[in-house]
Simulated assay, not measured.
Amino acid sequence: MTYRLRLDPTVHAIYTALPEPARRDMAVLLLDSLDDPLAHSTPYGEDDGILRTLALGSITLAALIGHDTKTITVLQISYLG
């Protein structure tokens, strides 16, 4: 089952301020992870299957995976640019 993406308005504002290549990396990363977020991420600290790190190119995200609600909530965006 496909997960839904959730972005807080503040996180979305950070996304919109990124340069185009970083926005593209983030979009590809999130779209790829919607089908199976655990396969496209690594543990963020202790492996609880909920708080995860997703990374591609110049973008690293901290995300909360809601298995019961089938949601991926982006908590933080890090850009190495």
Rank of each mutant, 00 (worst) to 15 (best):
M1R: 12
M1D: 15
Y3F: 13
R4M: 07
R4Q: 11
L5V: 02
L5P: 01
R6C: 05
L7M: 11
D8T: 15
T10F: 14
T10K: 14
V11M: 06
H12T: 03
A13N: 06
A13P: 03
A13Y: 04
I14T: 08
T16S: 13
T16K: 14
A17I: 03
L18Y: 08
P19A: 15
E20F: 04
P21E: 11
P21M: 06
P21K: 04
A22H: 05
R23V: 14
R24H: 15
A27T: 15
V28H: 01
V28N: 01
V28W: 02
L29F: 11
D32L: 05
D32Q: 08
D32F: 00
S33N: 02
D36Q: 10
A39H: 10
S41W: 07
T42S: 12
P43L: 05
Y44L: 14
G45Q: 01
G45S: 03
G45T: 03
G45H: 02
E46C: 09
E46V: 12
E46T: 12
E46K: 14
E46I: 11
D47S: 07
D47R: 12
D47K: 12
D47C: 06
G49E: 07
G49I: 13
G49P: 04
G49N: 07
I50V: 11
L51P: 00
L51Y: 09
R52N: 10
R52I: 11
T53Q: 08
T53L: 08
L54Y: 03
L54Q: 10
L54S: 03
L54D: 00
G57K: 02
G57L: 05
S58H: 08
I59C: 04
T60W: 03
A62P: 01
A62Y: 07
A63M: 04
A63G: 02
A63C: 12
L64V: 02
L64P: 00
L64H: 08
I65K: 00
G66Y: 13
H67C: 10
H67L: 12
D68S: 13
T69A: 12
T69I: 15
T69Y: 07
T69P: 00
T69R: 09
K70F: 13
I72K: 01
I72R: 01
V74R: 00
V74E: 02
V74M: 04
Q76D: 12
I77Y: 05
Y79D: 09
L80R: 10
L80M: 03
L80Y: 03
L80I: 01
G81K: 10
G81M: 07
